[in-house]
Structure formats: C-alpha cells, structure tokens
Nucleic acid binder design. Structure first.
Lengths: 224, 224
DNA sequence: CTAAAACTTTACAATTTCTTAAACTTGTAA
DNA sequence: TTACAAGTTTAAGAAATTGTAAAGTTTTAG
C-alpha cells in the first residue's frame, strides 16, 4: 500500500486532498504543521510527501530540507503545494531536494495524475537500483532503511541494519566473523571480540532469534 | 570496490601503475618494500597483489611465499613484475604460488587487460568454489556449512565438516592419519592418537557408517 | 550544551565442540 | 589359544566459542 503524507496548515485543503487520494486507493496521513509532519514522516515512512510551502513556524521548504538530511528520506518523493503567485519558490523548492510542485488551485484530476506519475517514476528507479529484499517474513527496504514484518515497522540502527543486510544478501550462506568484520567495519577500524555478538544479539531481539543461526567456530548465517 | 596492492621499491613505477589502475576505477594501495607490503596486505586484504621481484631485503618471491603461508591469502591473486631479462624467475614465481607475471617494460593497456583477466578468472573460480559437492546420497554445501541427505539437513560441527570435506575431496582415495592430521590440525597443534578416530566415529554416526571405510594400518577413505 | 541513542567494551555465564582416557572389539600371527 | 596390534566406543571434563547484562564511550539530535 502506498502511503502519502500531506502537511498543510489549512484543514480544508487537507480534507480535500485526502478525500481525493483515498478515493484512488492511497493510504493518506496528514499533519497540520511542519513539526508534526517531520515526526509523522519518521513514524510512517511514506513513499510520497506533499508539503505546503506557506506554513507558520516551519515552512515546507524547511521541512523538506530537514527530511533530506536524514538518509531514510533520500529517495522519498517530496512535492510542494504552491499558490500560483509564489512561483519564485520553485527554484528554492528544487534546491532543497523537492521533486515537483503542484500549483493551487488544485484540480483533483491534475493532482491524481501527477501523484501517480511521480510514484511511477520512483518505482522505475527503484527497480533499477535496489529492490526491496524479502526473506521469510521480513521485508527489508534499503532505501528507507527499515524492516517490515507484516505491518509492523522495525527500526534498526545503522550497524544492525548493515549486519542484517549482509546476512540477508546471501540467505543461508555462512559469514565468518572475519568476513562480517571486514565488510561492516572495514580494515581500519578495530573493535573487540564481543562486538559482533552483541549486534547479533540485538538483531535477534528485534527480528526474532530463529532466523540467525550460530555455527560455533565458523560464523553466522541467516536461515530462512 | 576492487582493492589492488602494489609492492615495488621504485616510486616511479608505483606512481605509474597506480595512476593507470586508478583511472580504471580500482582502489590502489602501494608499499615500497616487502615488509610494508606484507603488513599492508594484512590490513587492507586486497583482491590482487602485484609484486616486483627485484627488491632489496625481502624480494617478491619471498613476499609471495609468506603471503601464501597465511590462509587468508590462499585465494588472493598474486602477480609478479619481472624485467624482461630475468625470465628465469618465472619458474620460481609460479613455484611459490604466483598466479601470473607481467614483464617490464609495462604497457598500460597490457597491464589493465591482464589485471581484469585475472580478476575475472578469480571470480569464476569463486563461483566454482561455491558449487555443492555431491557424492553418493549426500550433498555437501560449503557455503552453508551443511550436508543434505535427500531432504534431511545434517548440521555438522566444524571439525567434522572439515573432515568430511577432506575425505570427499577425493572420493575413494585413502587418507593416512598423518595426512588427515596435517590437513585439518596443521603442524602447530598437537592432539592425541585417538582424536581422529573419535571424529570419524561421530561422522559415521551422522552420515551413515557405510560410507567411511577403515583400512587398518593405513587410513580412511570415503567410499561412494 | 544536554539528553538520548548508538555503539563498544567488560566480565562472566552458558553452551558447544573437542580431546582424552579407558574399556571394549576385532583380526591375526605365534 | 593367547597375545598383540589397531581401531571403536563411551563418557567425562577441558577448551574454545558464543551469549548476555550492564557499564562505559562516542555520536547525534534538539
């Protein structure tokens, strides 16, 4: 299901956009200001974010900038809503990493087709680059740096995510400690003997302990 | 990213090779003498090592020999640089486990294509290495460190797996105790006389006792 | 600058694997 | 038959490896 987040300070507009997008089968979430928007984006990890530019406190441009700072939103599609007469912002909007802008007043037809076009474009890029990896009951989304088990979002810190990604890159293959160490820490970082174990432990805690198997004296493997 | 380590005592040559390889997108590291080369090899774990043969103190041949002693370099590609008039060393170079040699003066084109060919070859061998060994009713999967008999998964501890792998590497061949001892424990570990027997017994217990035959006074073999 | 999160280390506990010692078999030659 | 040589089996405990909680350190977000 495609998740869309809309951030706008006018409830009327939220309702209007929401209604039209839901009718098309999207899962729509809304926020009434920039701060809530940022928070919600992190919580639901939408594929597409629609930001009104003109908002009190934190405007859309700033929200976009802050989103793009976080790696998990590097490839999220962000589009702006602009009043017709503030088209000067186009430049700035694209500067901070926006993908498109939609001019008010918004016609439902235009909105829908624009949104679909954006998602389609993104989908192509995604297929080309990095697909979502599915193993057993997990979906691992490299772009968004998140793991899904069913509907549940499992947020993993960087090292744990890398570790999982490594193990899952070849399900079943046994990775030696050396191999893990070299691939994740590299040759110029020195970490103690128990570091890998501890990360493995945390991973097991979060994704379930059956999946990662220990082979004593050899290494670890992801069993599926 | 493919890492290449070049060891040569002449900076000009290092620069020249380095420049040409980097242009092709390789990650190049250099060392000015054998000792540094060995150290650096251990630190960066390159896929390919280029060694000049003529070097003061420790020459390329010796560096290669020392590298090959360490298991982590068993499958690293090592190639030599030789002056045209010292081609007598070819023999020695291949003796100590070199994969190829490149004659000076070096032409960039030759260098690049040779390096690429070597890396390609290695990749194929790696794939080869990943093959599952099938003997009689067993499938031995090195990647997963597990044995399959039909649908049944047989997990073996490290030593037993190594032992099976050894016996199965040449089905029918008789391995003496000495040979087994040397290949699995190596020369610096001392274990008692009965240790091999016990491991053989456990293997028989798990994979069936018909397959491993005892030849009294001689050794063991895997019958198929 | 502070708090929180992420990461690493430490110090033991727990577990698995390996080795050994000793009793038991088997084959064989005197 | 007996004695010996070689191998097998068993069970116990040594050794090696990994798991865990908690504390310490570093990084990041606000």
């Amino acid at each position: 299901m495609t998740k869309i987040l809309i951030v706008d300070d006018e409830e009327d507009i939220l309702d209007f956009l929401s209604y039209n997008l839901k009718k098309e089968g999207f899962e729509v979430w809304t926020a009434l200001n920039g701060m809530d928007g940022l928070e919600m984006a992190n919580k639901i990890r939408p594929q597409l974010i629609i930001l009104d530019i003109m908002m009190p406190e934190i405007d859309g441009i700033e929200v976009c900038r802050r989103l793009r700072e976080q790696p998990q939103f590097h490839s999220t599609i962000i589009t702006f809503l602009t009043a017709r007469d503030e088209d000067f912002t186009q430049i700035k909007a694209l500067d901070v990493g926006g993908d498109d802008y939609i001019a008010k007043p918004i016609k439902p037809q235009v909105l829908i087709s624009r949104v679909k076009a954006l998602l389609r474009r993104n989908k192509l890029e995604e297929d080309d680059n990095e697909k979502i990896i599915e193993v057993s009951d997990l979906k691992i989304d490299r772009q968004r740096v998140q793991v899904l088990r069913g509907e549940e979002i499992i947020d993993l810190p960087k090292k744990e995510f890398e570790l999982l990604l490594l193990l899952v890159s070849r399900p079943g293959k046994v990775f030696t400690r050396e191999e893990i160490y070299h691939k994740i820490w590299g040759s110029d970082v020195i970490v103690g003997d128990r570091t890998i174990d501890v990360h493995i432990r945390k991973l097991r805690e979060k994704i379930g302990s059956d999946q990662i198997k220990t082979l004593k004296g050899i290494g670890y493997k992801f069993d599926f």
